[in-house]
Amino acid sequence: MISYGSVTKRFRDGTVAVDDFSLSVPRGSLTVLAGSSGCGKTTLMRMVNRMVDPSEGRVAVDGQDVAGQDPVALRRRIGYVMQNSGLLPHRTVGQNIATVPRLTGMDRSAARRKAADMMDLVGLAPELANRYPAQLSGGQQQRVGVARGLAADPEILLMDEPFGAVDPLVRADLQRQLVELHHQLGTTILFVTHDMDEALTLGDHIVLLQAGARIAQQGTPKDFVSAPASDFVRDFLGLDRGQRTLRRETAADGSVLLVDPHGRPAGVLAE
């Protein structure tokens, strides 16, 4: 569905953000590009909707090189959700969600219905439609961002650290809902994050990147935890620091606890 063929991106100042990157993202998957900041993951993601053009190599959607496509038309077919929602502050929630349907010629009332459906889909109360973004909480703004990204029924949804700026409880809620949405809609989702926990929670395919977008390892969450490919991967997962290496310990009442190397309880073992 999305394929990168030997893609390189050199910026004008000479830095190489992406160095000879190849990947194919299967249709309907939720693929996570993970890595620390500056590894080129956002640059890679933005090549899909031509917000960035590669210096070398090609990016294709459904086998067609994006370089030959009109960027505006391409972007209208691809949903995009970003960290601080990027909502238009002078438009209401409903108008923000209906942006792309309206741009592609849907009439006003149909677009309004579409926006209402989307709000329902992402769990926003209908009365929020006439509020302005500034009147919403951070979590609600991100939901509006997701609703806007999905409003044109895109086959691909790009998400750039969309839950990075909300508090942990809300983030967990949004993550759970995203997994549900993905099952329900079958949209191909390309998700960028620097948070390995988030990658393990969401991804059915994870690509861990090092500087220059060199692939350190790719695979399922289980592949990562059971067989980290290198010290870099172990380190990024926190395997060496012990957060993920747990021991069994039997408590006084006979239940089996899992404890980390410092003896702190991480949970109980359900037999």
């Binding site: 909707n49 917000m51 038309a73 209208r76 995009y80 990027g86 909502l87 502050p89 792309v100 741009l103």
Partner: peptide, 15 residues
Amino acid sequence: VDRQVVDAARAQGLT
């Protein structure tokens, strides 16, 4: 104008 807002608008497919 917040650059993120402009970036997001462009990414939605505004000309």
